[in-house]
């Protein structure tokens, strides 16, 4: 079916595309901004480290300030549920195995649900 002429005019098409993409993006954002950050902690040999304390750092303008800490469960998994920022750092530590290096995470929008792919490794430093 032939669209009426004014629809094909670029002054209508381009703004329409823009509006649709904005709406789609915002709906995706609202569906995925629970503030969830999950991951796991392993030791140098790859075994999960239950009970390791994991600290979540949040970036204000310049410095990273620590926001929250949690404990890994028996399977070495940990979960934060109140992240409101878009630039984070994760650091795992346990009294015997020492600290892991700070793994920095960049999210696409604030409080985006995020699942850490490769686990935090306690290098015994």
């Amino acid at each position: 079916m032939m669209l009426p002429a004014w629809i094909r005019n670029r002054w209508v098409i381009v703004p329409a595309i823009l509006a649709i993409s904005i709406v789609l993006w915002n709906s995706y954002v609202t569906a995925h901004n629970g503030g969830l950050v999950e991951g796991s902690v392993i030791d140098a040999a790859g075994r999960p480290v239950p009970g390791a304390t994991v600290t979540l750092f949040e970036r204000s303008f310049v410095a990273y300030t620590s926001k929250d800490t949690t404990k890994a469960d028996d399977a070495g998994l940990f979960r934060f549920t109140n992240n409101q920022n878009h630039a984070l750092q994760l650091e795992a530590a346990s009294p015997i195995l020492g600290k892991s290096d700070r793994h920095s995470i960049r999210l696409w929008f604030r409080a985006q649900n995020f699942r850490l792919v490769e686990p935090l490794r306690l290098a015994g430093r």
Binding site: F61, H86, A87, R106, L107, W108, F109, R110
Partner: peptide, 12 residues
Amino acid sequence: PHLFNYVDVWYF
């Protein structure tokens, strides 16, 4: 390359 600088700008 990554686009996260644009995200930072949007929020800073």
